[in-house]
Amino acid sequence: MRGAPPHEGAEPRRIRGLGEGAEESPLSALGVAVARLRRELGGYRAVLADREVAERQLATLERLIAGGDPDESDLRDALLLIAAAVGSVSALAAATAQLRRAVERLAMARRRGGVAAARPAVR
Rank of each mutant, 00 (worst) to 15 (best):
G21W: 01
R100Y: 05
L58V: 09
V47A: 15
Q57I: 04
A59L: 14
A109T: 05
A29K: 02
L48V: 14
L18F: 14
I82T: 02
H7T: 08
L18A: 11
R123N: 08
V32F: 08
S25N: 09
G21P: 07
G87H: 01
T60I: 01
H7F: 12
G67C: 06
Q98T: 04
L80I: 00
E72G: 07
R38Q: 06
G68R: 03
A109V: 09
G87T: 04
G19E: 00
I82E: 04
R36V: 10
R45G: 11
R45C: 09
L48Q: 08
Q98N: 12
D74K: 09
A29H: 14
R16T: 09
L106K: 03
G42Q: 00
E20H: 15
L81R: 06
S73D: 14
L30H: 06
V89R: 10
R16A: 14
G9K: 10
R100V: 03
A22M: 03
D50I: 01
L99T: 00
V89E: 13
R45S: 07
L64V: 01
P120I: 04
D74F: 13
R2L: 15
A83Y: 03
A118M: 10
A85T: 05
L30T: 01
T60A: 14
D71Y: 08
G67Y: 09
R13V: 14
G43Y: 05
P70E: 02
Q98P: 01
S88N: 08
E24L: 15
V103A: 04
R111A: 15
L48W: 05
D77I: 10
A91E: 15
R111F: 02
I65K: 01
I65N: 04
S28A: 15
D77N: 04
A54N: 01
H7Y: 02
A107C: 01
V86R: 00
L64Y: 06
L81N: 08
A107Q: 06
T60V: 07
A116K: 10
A46Y: 15
R14H: 15
R14C: 04
P70D: 02
E72A: 10
P120W: 06
R13Y: 14
